[in-house]
Design a binder for these strands. Structure first.
Lengths: 201, 201, 201, 201
DNA sequence: GATGAATGAGTATTCATTCAT
DNA sequence: AATGAATGAATACTCATTCAT
């Protein structure tokens, strides 16, 4: 009945469970305290295993962080791709993109705080999340919109960094202050800014 | 008729020099390694003094960081105010603001990396630079432009965070990749984005 | 059927042994050098373990001292209670008390030096041993003897402090100079002084 | 009009004043904080001089403590001798001795706390104050009273330690709790205890 | 595979003491 | 004689990582 390919021994399943518990504990702790205020003992403790067990599953602290960040980024990327895929109109696509981003942030509230914060250590460990996003997002943007419409006015690299910076900052800020502005208004504002930025007078 | 206020004893001058060397060393190291990968011993070593000497000038690591960050922020704020003061036209003001920001970043290349990075630890020590900037910048922006022109389309809080995020990200990125885009083009792009955002179709 | 409670794992036994070695080392060092001339490194070194190991067993220097002092005081108190319990006659009781004190000091020669020395720092860490003793001893004394027999001549508080001061000093002195006076003579002298003080002419 | 032999230069007088100020500051600080919670910087600061000046007058921290303790002990000894000198009767002499001790403690309240506390560090620095007192006091006592009157019941060494312990403890205790018992009652109690101890039934 | 005791290099901070001015 | 900046050894405590059981 497992969704994973069967034929695993009990030991393999047990190992996998321990690994998952470590990942879960690490996610929670990193989100709460930031990368370097979390010790490997903390993570093991949160996972309910002994300190040494951590090193049976990850070769060091950076690795588990990299894994967590990596899987989160992959999920985000997929979500964003999916969100924009079906849309033809520019406005629709941009709004769907913003909506997907906000939804993802809400669902990954804890890790989002780190991933979108621009934390230098986190960035050093994982090839900078935001830079990857910049490439992806800017790629989309360029393909779909900029082409031809604003010949030399806006530099595409600067623009992509600007958009990423804007998105990351707004998301991080809104995660910390969710009651200041309703969700829909955040999406709407993000959408408008991007549209106006690409359809100038 | 020295450039420094006269009437200081040799000891005072020596002390002041050591203090400045510590500050300079700390600035460079913080920029290079981030707040908590720098030890007080490192700072002292870089300044060419013994480890204990650090504590004759600063009571702890947080203090020297706060001092560095504080003075830099104050200088930045003044620079931005000054830049926007004389201008009547919106476009002129926005461009002058962007220009001042870029110039400041160039002159404070090292620290800029931290201040604009959104480093969570740095933010915890010094009342978050970017948040302060958000307030200031957003204030200006709101006063001068938004009034009446885009009634309820853009949320002012979200907008201010977006602008700050955009500016910080672009500046931090450009400091790391100064050769990718010429300075003028960065300024021009930043200016255009902001203007388009406030003069929508 | 070992002398220690069975059913312990090897790790638990090892841990307990290390802990005991740390306690033993600390006892010896504190006795030799006094509370604050002993470093946690010294204690670890004496126990034959690495410096960090100390902190796996005690959260800081004060704690290990408190533990050592606490257990010693508890043992002493029990010994004194036991010694005096069975005796009806005043003289018998006083002599048994003095005898128990001297025996205890002999058996705990090292720590006695600190506990009976009135060391102000030690006292600050552990609620002052001598003050506790003063209360206990004086309580016994008052109950059993003074009642009615010397109405207002001797102040009970002053008397109890005097007795404790006398006992502590004599014990500490005798531990340092065990060959000057034979054990029995110390006990006899202590007994006589106390009896004469309570059975005046 | 100085009480000291004249013929001192201004420099000599200035030096002497600085020295006295250091001694005064050290006395106050040692009394307040105990020997090793006082830094040489503290002492210099309290004396209103620079840190280095301390070492122009004392070669190290131990030395200034030794000097302070030494002069206090000498003064105490003189006071006690003086007090007992004129008296023929045993009771008179013992009471005068107790009275002098209490008076001295009151006048030197600050340092008394250390000198009578049995502080091990203080004792290590200065050849133990209390031991010196033990010798002196016991000497007096033996000469005047014990001779012949209690053939072998009380050991003189033990007795002298007992008396010193008693006196020191009562004095230290009373300095900390001056309101618990009136001064006269302390003296009376100390006197009675000693008399009864030497005039047993 | 899991345990958890142990390691030891690392780090902030203090303070007695020196010495150039 | 006085200053006070500088020194650097000392010390408590942390934590990533190892390894015998």
């Amino acid at each position: 009945m497992g969704s994973e390919p069967a034929g695993r021994t009990a030991a393999e399943r047990s190992r996998e469970q321990t690994r998952e518990r470590l990942l879960a504990g690490a996610r929670a702790l990193f989100a709460e305290l930031g990368l370097h205020h979390v010790t490997t003992h903390d993570i093991a403790g949160r996972a309910g295993v002994a300190a040494g067990t951590f090193y049976l599953h990850f070769s060091n602290k950076r690795e588990i962080f990299r894994e967590i960040a990596g899987e989160t980024i992959a999920a985000l990327r997929e979500r964003l791709d999916e969100a924009t895929r079906g849309h033809v109109g520019v406005e629709e696509a941009v709004r769907a993109h913003a909506e997907a981003l906000i939804s993802f942030a809400e669902e990954n509230r804890d890790l989002g705080r780190i991933l979108f914060s621009g934390d230098t250590d986190a960035a050093a460990v994982e090839s900078d999340v935001l830079n990857e996003l910049a490439a992806t997002i800017a790629g989309n943007r360029r393909r779909r919109m900029i082409s031809g419409e604003m010949p030399g006015l806006l530099d595409p690299d600067v623009l992509s960094q600007a958009i990423v910076g804007m998105l990351a900052r707004v998301v991080a800020w809104w995660l910390e202050n969710p009651d200041r502005v309703p969700r829909e208004r955040v999406i709407e504002t993000l959408t408008r800014i991007q549209l106006s930025g690409t359809h100038p007078v």
